[in-house]
Each structure stands twice: as C-alpha cells, then as structure tokens.
C-alpha cells in the first residue's frame, strides 16, 4: 500500500511550484466534492444515525453504542454474514480459477477463434445483474425452464436448483456467470503486458509451455489476481440482487436476513429501523474492508 504512483516532482522555485500545485489541486477538487457528497457524507451520516434508535412509538432517541452491541450478538446478522463468507470462500476461487484458465488459454494463442472467445465470454458482464437473475430464475424452473427440460430428458430429477441445499450454489452460478468474463479480461490484460522479450528469452532457454505459465505468466498476473479477488470479495459481501429476485420464486428459502445487505434493506425499508440498519451496514463495511485489506496485504507480501 505504500508505493504511490509517481508524480511529477516540480523544480524547486516559488511561483511556478505554487501554480502547479494549485492546478493539481484544481484538477482533483471536482472529484473530491462529489466524493464528499456521495461517499463521505453518507458514511458520516450513517455513523451518526447508528447512535440512535427509531421507534414507531416514541420517535428517536440517542442510545450511544447500543446498536453496535446488539449487532454483535444478533443471530440474524451472523446468519447472513456467515452465509456470504461461505459463499465467497467457495464461489470466488472457482470463478477466478475459471477466469484464469480462460485468460491463459486465450493468451496462449492456441485457440481457434480467439476473438469469438474473448467477446463471447465477456458478454454476460454487459447483462444487468437483475436481468441475469430474472433469466436464470426462469431457466431454473423445474416446470417451465431448462431445468425441467433437462430433468425430463434424464428421466429423473437430475438438477434441483431451488432445493434448499442447492440454492446457494444456484446463486453462485448466476454470479459466476456474470463475472467470469470480466475477471478473465482483467487477467488477460495483465498477461498482455508481459514484454515479448521475456518469452523470447524463455523460448531460447528451452522452457516448455507449462514452465512458461508457471514461472512467467502466473507471477505476471498475481497483482491483477489480487485486485480481482478484492473486488470479488467486496461484491460477495454486497450480495443482494440475485437472492432478492429469486425470493419471489422460493419465498421460504431466502429469509429476510439471507445476506447482510438484504437484512439491512429489510430493517430500514420494511422494519422502520434505519439506525439499526445503518449499524449493520457499517459493521459489514468494516468487516469487508478488513478482509479485503488482509487479502491484499497477503497477496502482495508473497509477491515481494
């Protein structure tokens, strides 16, 4: 986290330095104003909110850190938090492994129709998450969807995407489908940055494909992989659209605390508990940022 991208070091000397410095701040200011309005302000506001309690009867009272104490022993919160942790522990590695294999394959130049693969695999990323969840929701249906057709073909219930124990897998499948291409592209871009000379040198040394992958390509994508992992972790913790859409189809299997995000949403918009919802969001944000930071730290340390 320490290295900053290089900046121009202005030559010593009063007026010009001051002017350049002002200009630099000027370029960044518009972003910072917007950032303050839509990031810092809500964040500060939710910190403020989390110190209160809302009641239908009796209005709003200051309760200090009571909400935080409550979140830590709230079984519903942990139910959702543990579920998304399980989800990310399984789904993220699978998704990234697929993305990595695809990126390596496309980068290897050994595919027929490389362009087709690159675009085809990337297409799902352009599909809005809601639309993706709706489509898969239809397809998962045992009665009218592809699942039904497949099961008819097999003659028995081969697939049961809506069964209790498969549901999280079904959701994971939707998320994987949506983001494999995106991650593939990030990794592929990193691979393309390996200077050609490196490969040439390796080829002269007589390294075979697997050695090149192991000793040149994998190290080359590590940074990108860490970034992709961090984004995927953040995404998993925010899981909302897919379970929320599927809830209409399997109402009893997706509870109001299925993910922390759904829980916070239910609390604030159905339960009139905005303060507690803000607390849940903050705690979840801290956990997310903490885990993301750890992954980043670990990923980078191994590297150096």
């Amino acid at each position: 986290m320490s290295a900053l991208p290089p900046a121009t070091r202005p030559r010593p000397g009063g007026r010009l330095t001051a002017r350049v410095s002002r200009a630099g701040a000027g370029f960044v200011t518009p972003f910072l104003i917007a950032f303050a309005l839509v990031f810092i302000a809500p964040l500060a506001y939710s910190l403020y909110l989390s110190l209160f309690r809302n009641q239908l009867v009796g209005g709003t009272q200051f309760v200090g850190l009571d909400n935080y104490a409550a979140v830590f022993v709230d079984p519903k919160f942990w139910d959702g938090a543990l579920r998304v942790m399980l989800f990310l522990a399984v789904q993220v590695p699978i998704m990234l492994a697929i993305a990595l294999v695809a990126a390596l394959a496309i980068d290897s130049g050994r595919l027929h129709g490389r362009r087709l693969f690159r675009i085809g695999l990337f297409l799902p990323y352009a599909v809005p998450g809601v639309v993706a969840a709706m489509m898969w929701g239809f397809m998962y249906s045992d009665r009218i969807g592809l699942t039904g057709s497949l099961n008819d073909l097999a003659g028995f219930d081969l697939l049961a995407p809506y069964a209790k124990h498969w549901l999280l897998v079904s959701i994971g499948n939707i998320v994987t489908w949506e983001f494999v291409g995106y991650n593939m592209l990030i990794l592929y871009s990193a691979l393309k940055n390996v200077p050609t000379e490196t490969y040439e040198a390796a080829a002269i040394d007589g390294a075979d494909q697997f050695r090149i992958v192991r000793h040149i390509k994998l190290p080359a994508v590590r940074g990108a992989l860490v970034i992709a992992t961090v984004f995927s972790i953040i995404g998993s913790f925010q899981l909302f659209n897919e379970p929320q859409i599927l809830k209409g189809l399997v109402p009893n299997l997706i509870s109001t605390s299925y993910t922390p995000n759904i829980y916070a949403y239910t609390l604030s918009f159905q339960g009139n508990q905005v303060s507690y919802a803000a607390t849940v969001a903050i705690v979840m944000g801290v956990i997310t940022a903490g885990i993301a930071y750890l992954v980043q730290l670990r990923g980078m340390r191994r590297d150096s």
Partner: peptide
C-alpha cells in the same frame, strides 16, 4: 409460489 410464471402455467 403464487403469481409466478410457473403458477400461471
């Protein structure tokens, strides 16, 4: 579940 495409079907 009620009101789904499956239900109407």
């Amino acid at each position: 579940p009620g009101w789904t495409d499956e239900w109407f079907a």
